[in-house]
Amino acid sequence: MALLEVTAATGLSVVAGTAVTALLCVGPRQVSRAMTDVDDRVREVAPYLGPALALLAAKQLTQGYRLRLSRALDWDITDALYALEGGFVAALQDLTPEATLEFFTVSYMIGFAFLLVAAPVTYFLSPGQGRRHLKELLVAYMLNYAVGTVCYTLFISYGPRNHLETVSGLMYRAYPQTQDLTAAVASNTNVFPSLHTSLSVAVVAVAWRSRRTHPRWTPVAAAVAAAVVFSTMYLGIHWLSDVVAGVALGVVSVAVAARIVDRAESSSVAAHGGERGDPTVRTGDD
C-alpha cells in the first residue's frame, strides 16, 4: 500500500508540474496548436522514442539478472570511493540545516521525475526546433541508461548511508515509505555513477542548447536539477565521486547525442532527396 501511495503521489505531482510548465514555457495557444498535429509529431520522434522506451523496459526487466551477475563478479569499489573523498558527505550533512530535509526529499523523489517528463513534453509541444531538441534528449537518455546499466552491473558500490556510521539515510529515516519506490526501480548497490545527477545534467545541457527558443524552461530546469544533484549527497545516497562522474556523463551524453541526431537527420534528408532543408545546419547549437 505504501508503494502505491508514494507512486500515486509522485505521479500526480509530476503530471501537475508538467502541465503548468507546458502552459508557462510553451503557451496555451501553442499547446492547443500542437494537439491538432499530434500524430505527425509522434511519427517524427517515434524512431527515437521507441528505442528509448524499449531500453528502459529492458533495464527494468533484466534488473534481477544483472544484480545476480554483479554479485557474482563481486567488484566492490565502495572502499575506493571512500578513500578518494573521505567524509565529504558526512560534513555536507552536518553543514546543511535539517529544516531543508523535506525540500530535498521532494527534490529527489519528485523533482527528478519532473525533469525527466517535463523536458520531453515541453519540446514535443513546442514549434520549430522543439522536436530536434527532443530527439537529442531522448538519445541522451538512452546513453545515460546504457552506461549506467553497464557500470551498475560491473561494479558493486554502496552509498555513504550504507557504508559510514557518520552518514544518515535522512530521507529513508524521516519518510520510510519512499524506500519502497526507490527499491522497486534500483538496488542499493547502484550508485556509481549517479543517474539522478547525469540525467538531470543532461536535461540542463539540452535546455541550455535550447535557451533561445525556450528561455523560460532553461532556468526552471537548472534550478530543479541543482536541487536534485545536491539532494543525492545530502540524503546520503550518493558519494561526491558518483556526482562528479554523473555530471561528466550527462554533459558528454548530450554532446554525443547531438552528433548522433545530426547524422541521423542528415541521412533522413538525403534519403528523401533533401526535402527537409539543409542538413548541414546544426540547429541545436544556439
Score class of each variant (00 low, 15 high):
H214D: 01
S198D: 07
P193H: 04
A205N: 08
A205K: 12
S198A: 13
L195H: 02
V185A: 08
R209A: 13
H214W: 03
V191F: 06
H196R: 11
N188V: 09
R212K: 15
S198F: 08
T213L: 08
L195R: 03
A186Y: 10
A205R: 14
A186G: 12
V201E: 00
S210W: 00
T213Q: 11
N190Q: 15
V203N: 13
V191W: 02
T189R: 13
A207E: 01
S200F: 05
V203E: 13
L199H: 05
S194D: 02
N188G: 08
N188P: 14
R211V: 07
S187Y: 12
L195V: 06
V191Q: 07
L195D: 02
V185C: 03
R211Y: 07
R209M: 14
H214V: 01
R212F: 12
A207V: 02
V204A: 12
T189V: 13
S194M: 04
R211H: 12
R211G: 05
N188M: 09
H214S: 04
V185R: 07
H196I: 10
L199D: 06
T197G: 09
A205F: 11
V191P: 00
V204M: 11
V191R: 05
P193W: 07
S198V: 09
V191N: 09
F192M: 12
A202D: 00
S198I: 08
V206Q: 01
